[in-house]
Design a protein around this nucleic acid. Structure first.
Lengths: 226, 226
DNA sequence: ATCATATACGAACATTTGTTCGATGTCAAG
DNA sequence: CTTGACATCGAACAAATGTTCGTATATGAT
């Protein structure tokens, strides 16, 4: 019979404690803890206990373990209680210039004036995006006001009914409208519900991109970056 | 005389390569690399070379090293070329419900329907914030359309000219207007430049909060979270 | 009480990882 | 060329870290 210290009662949900500990550690250190750091932090007697629970957590799909690397724990999703404070990626979108009724949009390859940060999750993919600042009140019929930012995805064609940035070749005008194909002409529908649609021949409509988001800043900090 | 493999020429800026490698590794793995991972990744012959450069980088103030822990490297700031893809915090804001002309806004303490993520840097502080989804077209005069999200800060008073969520006690109506005090009455100015202002007695105006942002989602993914 | 299951324990082991050291090589300034 | 600052090299060591294993204990169902 081995001499052995009193074994402590199984903690009701050490598992959750460990999960939460990992999240908190990551928030504080911007790195994941080692098994022994968890052990000490939670006053667990042996690393094998931690290891045991980590294996369980992995089977539950709550964490991921990368090979046998040190600090190879990854949270698959964040514990609910911490979820709202967690970091999450944002991406920067180049602000290429302003957009006004009378002007064409800036060359998408031109040098950005600034960068706008938006959460990555707002987007399906981050390619071909740029932002424009709306200048003047020429687009109030699209419910877009002076100073608003619009996030645009460069794309040659848009789906039926999507809001697009359009260059009207005949009247040298940029506008935001929903696009509907109707035979050989195109119906351009303003966002404002009370405004009448506009019908133009297909050949004068040049799609510059589709509008993903409209951001209006009123009293806070503008979403600019440098 | 020891036999020894040919020593390679000093790489012009292995230092920067290492710095960049660390950043890229972190982006891919959400964890910092070990010395030997850097060594292999950059095909450096010995961990001591990496260690040497890390010490230099630390003296330059570009990185931080935490004790002698594994993966104890931290970037102090991100290399310029990578800066735009880096992570940055977002915070979650409770979506408390919808707002319509005829209804009062939901109780700020009520249970959120969902969470909206916006970049932390858009805000001065994250306290007392909530989001509302606009229902119907009753606020087109504020250039806010059906389905738009507004980010509101709970605040009893607003500064002159700020956009506020207002409950008009006399006509049981919620509205978004800019607020100007004029003697014992208040001028409520619609955001839409063509709309006329509205004058009401001060006592019927109940400020629910000030509007920080208006978010409109058109073709992308709604900024919701669960 | 009996039993099956989940959990806890500690020691030992194999890798991984950070670190040190003396020797050596490269390059540019003097 | 000589010199000094900087960079590279490989080997070895100590500490940190992940992992395994046999055993012991608590818990809940029967």
């Amino acid at each position: 019979m081995m001499k052995r210290a009193q074994q402590s009662k199984p903690r009701r949900d050490l598992r959750r404690e460990i999960l939460s500990f990992i999240a908190r550690w990551y928030q504080a250190e911007r790195a994941y803890p080692t098994i022994r750091e968890i052990q000490k932090g939670l006053k667990i007697s042996s690393p094998s206990v931690v290891n045991y629970h980590l294996r369980c957590l992995e089977e539950e799909g709550l964490i991921l373990r990368i090979g046998r690397r040190s600090r190879g724990i990854r949270l698959r999703r964040w514990p609910d209680s911490l979820t709202m404070d967690m970091e999450e990626n944002t991406i920067s979108i180049p602000l290429l210039g302003s957009i006004a009724a009378g002007d064409p949009i800036p060359d998408p390859s031109s040098h950005p004036l600034a960068w706008i940060r938006i959460p990555q999750r707002w987007l399906v993919d981050g390619n071909g995006l740029f932002a424009l600042r709306v200048q003047g009140n020429s687009m109030v019929d699209a419910m877009v006001g002076d100073g608003d930012l619009i996030i645009v995805k460069t794309i040659p064609q848009v789906e039926e009914g999507e809001m697009a940035v359009i260059w009207l070749a005949d009247r040298h005008e940029t506008t935001l409208k929903r696009v509907y194909r109707e035979g050989d002409r195109i119906r351009l529908q303003p966002a404002h519900p009370a405004m009448p649609p506009m019908y133009v021949p297909a050949e004068v409509v040049q799609i510059q991109g589709k509008v993903l988001h409209v951001l209006r800043n009123l009293n806070g900090i503008p979403p600019l970056d440098g």
